[in-house]
Amino acid sequence: MVNADPPILSINTVTKNFGGLCAVNRVSFNVRPKEVLGIIGPNGSGKTTLLNLITVIFPPTSGEIYFKGHKLNGLRPYQVNSLGIARNFQDDKIFLNMSAIENAMVGSHGRSRVGLYGVGLHLNSYKKEEQEIFERAWNQLAFLGLEKKGDTSPSALSVKERHLLGIARALVTEPELLLLDEPVAGLSFKETEEMGDLILLLRERGMTVLLIEHRLQMIMNISDRLIVLNFGCKIAEGAPAEIRENEEVIAAYLGKG
């Protein structure tokens, strides 16, 4: 799947220091449109920090990140989302105080247009928009197989369902780039395969996916390319076949145990 189009995401020499700890060290790479790019590396190598930098949960100590030509430095996370980047979280961060469908409906908030008056007075414009929000949310839940769980409280969902809900909520924002942080944590072998199929399906529908995972087999199977991090530095980049043979990568993993 070679792609000559300009990169959809550019990480340019990005560094992040937390006090004395360097979590991400001068990392650079590009993400090509419609590819599945995997990020692997031992624990503590900076993968999640990198994701947090892309969504500007905190700013980089140095370096820039560009998304479709827009510079992301200095933006707030909700603005990053409206540009077209969505993500899930390792711990899902589901809103526990609302049902599953409501969780998904929050994803439409940024795109909603009706103002305070319309909402407060329940005008027709509001009711129409609310219906659209509901349908959009329901479609994503159905796409991920959660259509029966719409009214369920999050505490009653299984681990897999919670992961899927987090992704559904992100998908409602209609992103072009989806960042997934360990989406198969705690899932069975079969569930992991299903998640992999889902990611490939999303890619077929035109989405670009940036994926962090520990399950090496899964991520190697579905990624077009891989980036390997160790101690915050990028130590390898390439197709899964190359990475598998890369001595430095092997040493990094074996060394960490």
């Binding site: 989302n81 409206s82 526990l96 929050v106 908030h109 940024g110 409602v172 924002t173």
Partner: peptide, 15 residues
């Protein structure tokens, strides 16, 4: 009550 500002921001809510 179980909300999350980080998650809300990540789905486009200007918290």
């Amino acid at each position: 009550a179980g909300g999350s500002e980080t998650a809300a921001q990540s789905v486009g809510v200007n918290t």
